[in-house]
Simulated assay, not measured.
Amino acid sequence: MSYTIKTTEEGLIYIKASSIIRISRPNSIDGAKVSGGPLIINADHITFLSFDTESKVTYFMMNGFQVSMKILYQEAEEAFQYGKSRTEKIIKE
């Protein structure tokens, strides 16, 4: 896998598994983990991008999940914008 984060023409954002810190849902007992392949997120399902309570860059999803990542805020924002505009782009290699 030659990318850390990339977008596709279908509006999907691919995030390398090693860049994911945590996938969680507030008020739940445990968080989910990503093993192996990339995490695929539909950009249309992202409510907003911000920082979580531990100051990690986080996508807040419509379904209540939070995806915290080990990437810069600018890279996550760029991926979000390219995903919304349905442009294929490798943000970080």
Rank of each mutant, 00 (worst) to 15 (best):
K56E: 10
S2M: 09
Y59T: 02
G83A: 12
S50R: 08
S2H: 09
G64H: 06
M62I: 03
A32T: 04
G36E: 05
I41G: 14
A79E: 08
I29Y: 02
Q81Y: 08
S19A: 13
V67I: 15
N63P: 15
R22A: 13
L49W: 07
A76K: 07
A76N: 08
M1H: 02
D30P: 10
G37M: 11
K84A: 04
L39Q: 00
L12D: 11
V34L: 14
I46A: 00
F51K: 15
F48L: 01
I23M: 13
F65Q: 05
G37Y: 14
S55E: 14
V67C: 08
E75Y: 15
P38K: 00
I90M: 06
T47Q: 12
K84H: 10
Y3Q: 00
I20W: 10
I20S: 09
L72G: 12
L49V: 07
S85N: 13
N42L: 12
T8W: 09
S68D: 06
K33F: 08
S55Q: 12
G83Q: 03
S18E: 15
G64F: 04
I21A: 11
S24P: 02
Q66G: 02
R22P: 11
T58K: 10
K6G: 04
T4L: 15
E77T: 03
I13P: 03
T47M: 13
D52K: 03
S50E: 05
G11D: 05
I46W: 02
S28P: 00
F51A: 05
Q66R: 12
F48P: 05
N63K: 04
S68P: 02
V34M: 11
Y3C: 01
N27W: 06
T58D: 02
A17R: 14
N27F: 13
F48S: 09
L72M: 13
K89W: 03
T47W: 14
E9D: 13
E54G: 01
G31W: 11
T53H: 14
L49D: 03
G11K: 06
T87N: 03
A76D: 05
M1T: 07
Y14N: 03
I29W: 06
K84F: 09
S28I: 09
I46D: 09
E93C: 02
G83S: 04
